[in-house]
Nucleic acid binder design. Structure first.
Ligand code: FES
Ligand code: FES
Lengths: 162, 162
DNA sequence: CTTATTAAGGACAATATATATCCGCAAATG
DNA sequence: CATTTGCGGATATATATTGTCCTTAATAAG
């Protein structure tokens, strides 16, 4: 089990969009070039963000993407779920029902104990992701990334932002 | 991203092995029949458990598997990792290094902030799985599964246990 | 108005992973 | 010896991921 590489892409793109001045857009082309990613395929990830209403788009030259909400109101889980889907990482195929000792018409009242534990772990994962907002990420990044690289990057971005 | 179905299989098989009397073995054939699973493929999952030293095996007629440790000393994470591997669910391909504004010889001192959050969530998932032992599972199961089915199942199992 | 640029999305191909089967080997049992 | 078992390798199939290509409609700039 492994998350799609698009998750890393989407999170980094959102981090860049989070640093964009109010009202400006950034295109797939710029985001792909900045991160060294295949433009067409990155586009699919951005479309997922769009469908999840995390970003807004506009067409034409100087078009592209911007965040649809303040950075404090978008969290990691929003982005991960937009790309990975919202289904749980553990799926129970109800193999307990194959037990030959069970009456054939027996109907379980609860989900299986095994599945409940797995889903509890899934919830812990989700809760952690939910607890970190894009605003938190930008703050951490601006501490971690050397000031000159950070500055140069956003100059580079602003030159290309519509 | 989705866990292999073998995870569900392995957990249920361990739950059965946990109910086995001291020193008895149960074969792949019996475990496959009990859960309605393809014997050959289930065998791969059990081999994973064996390689992780969670179970002991013996060959020949009346051979099969038994737990290698007391049920209180085997947890969900042990079993899940045996089947899924121990690598993290999020892999960072270091796309930040592709930023054209970075000096080419620049070397990051820390893992990326994005990855750190994802790994933190991964840890939360693992910690939850680690906190539930096979002993806990058996206790919950024996409460959830109707007493007669539970009893019949272990009669069925004991008839086949070597 | 015309042209260039953009997001959106459908079709498709390549690759990787998960699922499944089959076979031969060596150990254990009786 | 004959049978049963776990183990590992080889292989096949199905599904998911990754990636490309193309068309369409909207938008901005000249
Ligand atoms: S039957 Fe699916 S987890 Fe128990
Ligand atoms: S570079 Fe991999 S998560 Fe940031």
């Amino acid at each position: 089990m492994i998350l799609k590489s698009q998750v890393e892409w989407a999170l980094h793109c959102c981090a860049i969009l989070a640093g964009l001045p109010q009202g400006r857009y950034l295109s797939t082309k710029a985001l792909a070039e900045l991160h060294g990613l295949p433009k067409e395929y990155l586009s699919k990830a951005l479309q997922s963000l769009s469908q999840a209403s995390l970003v807004e788009t506009t067409l034409g030259p100087s078009g592209g993407y911007r965040l649809a909400r303040p950075t404090s109101e978008i969290n990691f889980l929003d982005i991960v779920e937009a790309v990975e889907g919202k289904s749980r990482t553990f799926t129970c195929s109800n193999i307990r029902a194959n037990n030959p000792c069970r009456p054939k018409d027996f109907c379980d009242s609860k989900p299986c104990s095994v599945a409940r534990v797995m889903w509890q772990a899934d919830e812990a994962w989700r809760n952690t992701l939910k607890s970190v907002s894009l605003a938190d990420l930008v703050e951490t990044l601006s501490e971690d990334v050397p000031a000159d690289i950070w500055k140069n990057t956003f100059e580079w971005v602003l030159q290309r932002a519509g």
